[in-house]
Every structure is written in structure tokens, then in C-alpha cells.
Design a protein around this nucleic acid. Structure first.
Lengths: 190, 190
DNA sequence: CACCTGATGTCACATCGTGTCATCGGCTAC
DNA sequence: GTAGCCGATGACACGATGTGACATCAGGTG
């Protein structure tokens, strides 16, 4: 038997979600989270940069996954189609199964501006990763930055729409639809 | 003579900018800022929600200014043209004059992820204000959210380009150019 | 002249987040 | 097999952040 129970980060995340749901984010202290997970405060901060970060454990690898999909994508796609392909591929793994978890996290995140702030930073990190992948694939830097920012915004709004809508509608279809609507909105009005 | 010197918030902001420039953001404590401004720590936190907020004093009213320009805009503009009109109008007041101040603030903001995080929250607040103004002007909510997010991203990237470029190029022209390039990027590739 | 208002000061305090050293199970080298 | 290293955790002290509660006092108002 190992000296320490495995998955310390996951146990901390589960404990945090429970306490946040029971008492709210602000009323939950880090020592309380650590205690429920059977660890100490110091160990919490070894796994998470700060208290907010515990809500984003699942998304840590998302930017690099998307970036890899972008660099390995089939040639010939336009910039935006490439981005849609990458986001789609990274988020496609039986998303419906996680709907409740995502909704629970989102409910907590929307309860505190601090947490929305962190979510925005994560989205910006995704946009940065996509921009860099585009640039190293030959896209001009200004175009890459513009397209990556737009794609990140599209993804966030699509995810929100997906969560608010009925089960069964795929994120892929919503993303596609949002992209088309934004295209029409941006086009010079007659 | 008034009991207290006026412009406490402005004095705190100036003191903070000086100390951040001299010693860096992380090495500057709130008591040090307050002392240089001739005030106490407690008063600092009465004017600013937290240490980061002191860097965004000048932008506090920006979202509501843009929102007002949107609701008072001439009729007949398309959604995106309306947004460009609002952003343009709100940022047009002799921006060149503030270039150095904006650049100094930006240099500090880019030195710490915490500060970029806050900047992103401010941008999101601007997007929210624009979205709400569009909605109360009759734009369908999903379109308003999409267009406002895109416009906010365009504005941020345009400001960055403006700062990096030579003096004399107007933000208006960069914004216009970025909008056209994003339109082309989003269009279905042949 | 008494009272109210509002910005500031003072003090106590909880929480956050970090630096530093100790602990000790398991793995590797020899 | 045993000596020693490695890496995750514990223990503890501490500075900094941010808030609540109450006091102070100039100027305006009745």
C-alpha cells in the first residue's frame, strides 16, 4: 500500500465542490477543504495555485489538447474551420455525460465575480494556445490572434447555450450555428 | 480649506503607479501605497475593491459611456456598425495624449497574470454592458451576446496594435481594419 | 446652536498564500 | 539486502490581503 492515498488533487476537488455547494464559495475556507480531503492546507496549495484554481482542475490540459489537434489537423482547412475542428475534437468526448458536473461548476462560478475572472483567464489561455498553434502553422500573427480570440468567444458562448438548452443538442451543432451567425453579424450591412 | 485633501483616489492611483514602476507590482504593499498618498490602508480599500483595482480607475466609466452611445446612436446602423460607432466614440477623445500613460499601465499589467486576469474581467464587463444596450435596443439576445463579445475582442486587439504601432495611426482606423480582417477570416472558406 | 452627513482614522481579526525544514515510504544502485 | 536518494506530505511561522466595527471631526442644514 502506498504511503499516501492516490489522487490527492481529485480528492481535494471533490471536497471543495461539496463544501462550495453546501455553504457557498466565500464561506468555505481552504483548511476546511483540506480537512475533508484528509490533507493539510499546505498540501492544498501545492496542488492548486490558489483557492479559485480548484474549480478548474478538469480543464488544465484542454488548451494543449486543442493545440495538438490544430497542428495535426488535415491540411487545406481555412483558419476558422481549423479552429472549429480543434475545439470540436477536444470537446467531443461524450460531453453529455458530464453535463451535470459542468452545470454544477458553472453555478458556483457564476456566484462570484472572482470566479468568472478566473474563468476568463482560462479562456484567454486557450486563445493564446490556439493563436500560437496557428502561428507555428504559418498563419500570420495578427490573423491568428484575431481568429483565436473569436474562436474562444464562440466556444464560451456555445458552451453556455449548450448548457441552457435541452439534452441531445450537440455542442458541435451549436458551435457551427454560432459561427455562422457571427459571420452574418460581422458582414458589412448593406 | 477642506478637512481632507481632494482626489484621494487619484492620489492613491498616482502613488501606486510610482511604486509599481519603481519596485514592481508584487513587491509593493498596500500600506506603502497609502503612506505615499498620505492616507491609511483602510482608506485605500474604501476607494478600491482590492490592490489590483487601482490600475483600472480610469476605465471605470467606460462601459456606461459606451452603453449610452449605443442607445443614443443614429438609427439604421447594423449591429456591428453600431458597436464600432460606440467604441469609437468613447475612445476618440484625443487618445494620443494618453498613449504613454496607457503604455505604462499596460507594461505593469502584462507583468503579472493576476493583472491580466483583472483586465479580462473589465473587458467582459464592457461586453456585458454592450450586450445589454443592444438587447434593450431590440437586438435578439443571442445575437447581442455574440456581437458584443466579438466587438470587445476586436477593441482589445486593436488597442494593443495601436500601442505597438507608430504614433499618428488612429485607433479608429485600426479598429475598422481589424473588423474587416475578422470578417474575412470568419467567412466560409471557398 | 444642535444635529446630521460623509470621508477618514484606528484597531482587531480571519483568511490567503509562501518559505523552510522535517518526515518517511518506496525505488534504485551496487 | 542495505544504503541512499526521491518525492509527496506535514508542521510551523509569517507577511500580506481584505473586512467589520467604532471613533473622529469639518462642513452643511434645520
Amino acid at each position: 500500500m502506498a504511503r499516501w492515498a492516490p489522487d490527492a488533487a481529485l480528492r481535494l476537488e471533490r471536497a471543495a465542490m461539496e463544501l462550495f455547494t453546501e455553504n457557498g464559495y466565500a464561506a468555505t475556507t481552504v483548511p476546511a477543504i483540506a480537512e475533508r480531503a484528509g490533507l493539510t492546507t499546505r498540501t492544498f496549495f501545492r496542488h492548486f495555485a490558489d483557492k479559485r484554481d480548484v474549480l478548474f482542475l478538469r480543464e488544465r490540459e484542454f488548451p494543449s489538447v486543442v493545440a495538438h489537434l490544430l497542428t495535426d489537423a488535415p491540411a487545406g482547412l481555412g483558419t476558422i474551420d481549423l479552429l472549429m475542428h480543434g475545439l470540436d475534437g477536444a470537446a467531443s468526448g461524450d460531453l453529455e455525460r458530464w453535463r451535470d458536473d459542468i452545470a454544477a461548476r458553472r453555478a458556483i462560478i457564476r456566484s462570484e465575480p472572482q470566479l468568472r475572472e478566473r474563468e476568463l483567464l482560462k479562456s484567454a489561455g486557450l486563445a493564446d494556445a490556439m493563436r500560437d498553434a496557428l502561428v507555428s502553422n504559418g498563419t500570420p500573427a495578427p490573423d491568428a490572434a484575431l481568429a483565436a480570440s473569436a474562436a474562444s468567444a464562440l466556444f464560451d458562448l456555445a458552451l453556455e447555450t449548450w448548457l441552457a438548452g435541452p439534452p441531445g443538442v450537440t455542442l458541435t451543432s451549436i458551435l457551427h450555428d454560432h459561427r455562422l451567425r457571427l459571420t452574418r453579424l460581422l458582414a458589412p450591412s448593406a
